[in-house]
Computed example of a mutant assay.
Amino acid sequence: MTEVLLKTPLHAVHVEQGAKMVPFAGYDMPVQYPLGVKKEHLHTRDAAGLFDVSHMGQLRLKGDNAAATLEALVPVDIIDLPNGNQRYAFFTNEQGGIMDDLMVANLGDHLFVVVNAACKEQDIAHLQANLLEGVELEVIEDRALLALQGPKAVDVLATLNPAVKDMVFMDVARLELLGVECIVSRSGYTGEDGFEISVPNAQAAALANTLTDSDLVEWIGLGARDSLRLECGLCLYGHDLDTTTTPVEASLLWGISKIRRADGQRAGGFPGADIILEQIATKDVKRKRVGLVGQTKAPVREGCKLFDANDVEVGIVTSGTAGPNAGKPVSMAYVRSDLMAVGTEIFAEVRGKKLPMTVEKMPFVPQRYYRG
Rank of each mutant, 00 (worst) to 15 (best):
V76P: 00
K354C: 01
M29V: 07
S251H: 06
D240L: 04
K305E: 14
L137R: 07
A204D: 01
A66C: 00
N325P: 00
G84A: 00
S227C: 02
R260T: 10
V22W: 06
D123N: 14
R143I: 03
S198C: 04
T159K: 13
Y334A: 00
T2K: 15
N93I: 09
N83W: 13
K20G: 06
V53C: 08
A47Y: 15
L5T: 04
E302A: 14
F51E: 03
A118I: 12
M357A: 06
F91Y: 15
R351Y: 14
V53K: 01
A144Q: 06
A281R: 15
H14L: 08
V217K: 00
A67L: 09
A341D: 14
Q367A: 11
G327I: 02
T321F: 08
L207G: 09
K7G: 01
F169N: 11
T318Q: 13
A322E: 12
M1R: 14
F195Q: 04
M362D: 00
D338A: 12
L131N: 06
K328D: 02
A326V: 09
M332K: 09
K328N: 00
V156L: 01
P200A: 11
V135R: 00
S257M: 07
I256C: 11
D213T: 04
N83Q: 14
T321Q: 08
G238F: 07
A89P: 08
K20E: 12
W254R: 13
L228C: 07
D193W: 05
L228K: 06
G272Y: 06
E278R: 15
A326G: 12
F91W: 11
R336K: 14
T296V: 05
V317I: 15
L222H: 06
A153M: 03
T282N: 07
P200F: 10
R87C: 15
P75R: 06
I98M: 11
F195A: 03
D171R: 09
F195E: 05
E16L: 05
P75K: 04
T296R: 11
A273G: 01
K354D: 05
K283N: 14
V330W: 06
V217E: 03
S337G: 03
D77Y: 09
A147L: 04
V317L: 09
S54K: 03
G238C: 09
V330K: 05
T243G: 07
A129W: 04
A273T: 02
R229W: 13
A129L: 11
V312E: 14
V290A: 01
T190R: 04
